[in-house]
Amino acid sequence: MGLLTFSLNVTLDGCFDHQEGIADDETHAFFTRLMDESGAMLWGRVTYEMMESHWPAVARGEVDAPPALREWAIKLEAKPKYVVSSTRTDFPWTNSHLIAGDLRAGVQRLKDATPAGVLLGSGKLAAKLDRLDLIDEYKFLVHPRIAGHGPTLYQGGLPGTRRLELISATPLRSGPVAMHYRRSADPTSVPAREDAAALVPFATGVQRVVEGQQPVDQHAGDHAHGRHGDQRDEAGHADLLVAGQPAAAGGVDDAVAVALETGHQAASLAAFLTLATARSRFRRDRWSMNSTPSR
C-alpha cells in the first residue's frame, strides 16, 4: 500500500491561495521532484479544473513558459490524475480518473493500488481526508509570507490534534522552507475530545473564583486527575488548587502545567485561554491584596 502525502504551498499564517508565495525555478523543482516520486496525483474538482485550464497548454507548447514550468507540465500530462467530484463525470485531460461514491473507500482503494504513493494537492479535500485518518505524510513548502486572508488550512477543524514527527526541514535560497512531517506512531497522539470537554467547566470555575463571581469552596469536588478547590494559609488567604497543586501567587503557571501533564493534554484552546485569563487576574488580585497597607 502506498502513502497518501499532502503537499501544498502555504504561508506562515496557513493561507494556501495559489497566488501567494514565491514562484521560481527552485520551488517548481521541489514540486516536480515530489511528483516524480509519487505514483499518482489526487485533487478535488476545483483544484483539478484550475490545473486543467493551464498546464495542458503549457505542455503542448502553446503558452510561453520557462524550462522548469514546461518540465512540470510535460510530466503532469503523463502522471495519473484522480479527481474527487460529485458534480462532474467527464474528464478529458490525459490520464484523468474520477473517484466517486464513498470517499474513504475510493481513496483507500487508490492507496492500495499505488505502491509509489499518492500526492494530494487540494486544501479542502485534505481536510476531509484527514478527518478519515487517510493522510500519512505532510510535505509543505512554507513561504515567508503572511497573507492575512484565506483560504487557510483546516478551516472546518479536526476531531482532534494531529501530532506529527519531523522528518526534515530544508530551507530554499529564496526563503521558503520545505517541511516534511509524518503522522506520529504514538497511539496517544490524538487526544480524546472528552478530556478537553471535561476541562472546560473546570477552567470556567477557576475564572469565576478569580473574578469573585463565586466564593472559593474548600470542597469544590474532585476532578478526574486531582482535587480542585482551595487551601488556606494561616492568614486565611485562599490559594486555588489545580490538579491538586497549590496555585499561589506566581504558581498558577506551574499548576496549569501539572494539570496538562497529568491527563489534560487534550485541553481545548478555549479552556487554555480561560486558564490564562484566570492566571493573569489571579496574580493581579494577589498583588493588590499583598500590597495593601495594614490598618
Rank of each mutant, 00 (worst) to 15 (best):
108 Q>M: 12
96 S>G: 12
160 G>Y: 14
221 G>K: 06
143 H>F: 08
31 F>S: 08
140 F>N: 02
25 D>G: 07
196 A>Y: 01
266 A>Q: 00
42 L>A: 05
165 E>R: 15
260 L>P: 00
3 L>I: 13
95 N>H: 15
132 L>Y: 09
24 D>Q: 03
207 Q>T: 12
24 D>L: 02
114 T>N: 11
100 A>Y: 04
64 D>K: 15
216 V>K: 00
1 M>D: 12
293 P>D: 08
108 Q>L: 14
158 L>R: 08
37 E>G: 11
39 G>T: 09
44 G>W: 01
213 Q>T: 05
100 A>I: 03
224 A>R: 15
63 V>P: 01
5 T>I: 14
238 A>F: 08
115 P>H: 05
112 D>T: 08
124 K>Y: 07
136 D>V: 09
210 V>Q: 01
95 N>V: 03
212 G>F: 06
102 D>T: 03
153 L>C: 05
140 F>H: 03
255 A>S: 12
19 Q>G: 15
149 H>T: 12
182 R>A: 04
22 I>C: 05
248 A>V: 10
123 G>Q: 12
176 P>L: 03
114 T>R: 03
75 K>T: 06
33 R>S: 07
147 A>S: 15
267 A>C: 12
58 V>W: 06
138 Y>G: 05
194 E>G: 07
212 G>A: 10
178 A>G: 02
272 F>P: 00
196 A>W: 00
167 I>Q: 14
13 D>Y: 06
161 T>C: 06
241 L>Q: 02
42 L>F: 04
228 H>F: 13
147 A>P: 11
75 K>P: 01
48 Y>C: 03
282 F>T: 00
290 N>W: 15
237 H>V: 13
200 V>W: 08
54 H>M: 12
189 S>T: 09
144 P>M: 10
1 M>Y: 01
22 I>Y: 02
25 D>R: 04
262 T>V: 13
104 R>G: 05
278 A>H: 01
213 Q>L: 14
247 A>G: 15
124 K>F: 06
166 L>P: 04
23 A>L: 15
292 T>E: 13
292 T>M: 14
200 V>E: 13
59 A>K: 05
183 R>M: 11
196 A>N: 01
248 A>E: 12
235 A>D: 15
182 R>W: 03
158 L>K: 10
133 D>C: 00
198 A>K: 10
175 G>P: 02
110 L>K: 03
277 T>I: 04
254 D>T: 15
106 G>C: 04
57 A>W: 06
181 Y>R: 08
87 T>W: 08
141 L>M: 09
190 V>I: 11
267 A>T: 10
95 N>Y: 06
162 R>G: 09
62 E>N: 10
16 F>N: 03
121 G>V: 10
97 H>Q: 09
240 L>D: 03
